[in-house]
Design a protein around this nucleic acid. Structure first.
Length: 264
DNA sequence: AACTGGTGCAACCGCTGCATG
DNA sequence: ACATGCAGCGGTTGCACCAGT
């Protein structure tokens, strides 16, 4: 029958993570890699549920995370992706390197939703609000896309490599063969190479759009930008360097578990 | 200075699909 | 084939912080 239970519910700590717990989790994952969350709390010496550890790592401790508010371009990308994918936050997050589903979901609920309502757009259907009050009104699907990411225009906040790949993608895949039927049926995907590329599987498969640190030094450098200011232990960690972790560069096995390009 | 309401975000809860025995 | 566990996902909650009164 089945497997062993994930974790016993007794003695499992809940609530905000302490710096000490963060340190233990990061140390464990950098040493052993990201696998089998069920065993992580036990092996890392944490009184947490594996689920909680996974969440903490993916939403907060992961070194490739960007911190801070989404910029204007990211916000518009989220709106466009939401119009196409709905509330599938993980799918949306997969198309925004360095952003988590939780972060995007929160940003959507606290910022974008209100903005759209203010603009007279239903955040669920992406249709004008008055259209719903008056079904007779003429359709106005372009209202959102008037300000969408324009491949030839406002793309200064999108990483250069993504734009470059979008350009080559649009020239090499004129038949949109890598786009799912649902996505390719979208009336807007044809005329926006950047969106077509981002929605395509090629985007997710192309690891060059991600910049994941592979050493502890790089983790510290990389992580500093995201955790600086709100995780005092991280300063300490940076100072301790390899002495603290007792390791230098990762071996191949470590690298393989750190490759999360297919996870989000 | 104290209170109140709004806001933002981290973390939890519960469900689902897939894997496992 | 079936029961069960796990990982992942989306919805929701709780709390800290801040601005306004």
């Amino acid at each position: 029958m089945g497997r062993q239970p994930c974790c016993d519910k007794f003695g499992v700590k809940k609530g905000p993570w302490t710096a000490e717990e963060d340190k233990k989790l990061v140390n464990f994952i950098l040493t052993h890699g990201q696998c089998c969350w069920r065993t992580v709390p036990k092996l890392a010496g944490l009184r947490r549920c594996g689920k909680s550890c996974r969440l903490r790592w993916t939403n907060y401790l992961r070194p490739d995370l960007k911190r801070g508010l989404l910029n204007e371009a990211e916000e518009r990308l989220v709106i466009d992706l939401h119009a196409r994918l709905g509330n599938r936050w993980s799918k949306i997050a997969a198309r925004l390197p360095g952003r988590t589903d939780n972060e995007i979901k929160n940003h959507w609920n606290t910022h974008i939703k209100k903005k759209l309502i203010k603009m007279g757009i239903d955040p669920v259907t992406h249709e004008p609000l008055q259209k719903q009050n008056n079904p007779e009104a003429a359709p106005c699907n372009n209202i959102i896309y008037d300000h969408q990411l324009n491949f030839n225009g406002d793309q200064h906040d999108i990483p250069n490599n993504i734009c470059a790949q979008a350009a080559s993608f649009s020239s090499s895949s004129s038949d949109n063969s890598s786009i799912t039927p649902t996505e390719s049926s979208d009336p807007h995907s044809d005329d926006d190479p950047l969106m077509s590329y981002i929605l395509s599987d090629s985007f997710l498969e192309d690891s060059s759009t991600w910049n994941f640190p592979v050493t502890r030094e790089e983790y510290c450098e990389f992580g500093m930008s995201s955790l600086e200011g709100n995780s005092p232990w991280f300063l300490e960690l940076k100072d301790l360097g390899d002495d603290y972790f007792g390791l230098g560069r990762f071996n191949d096995a470590d690298l393989s578990v750190l490759d999360m390009s297919d996870k989000h």
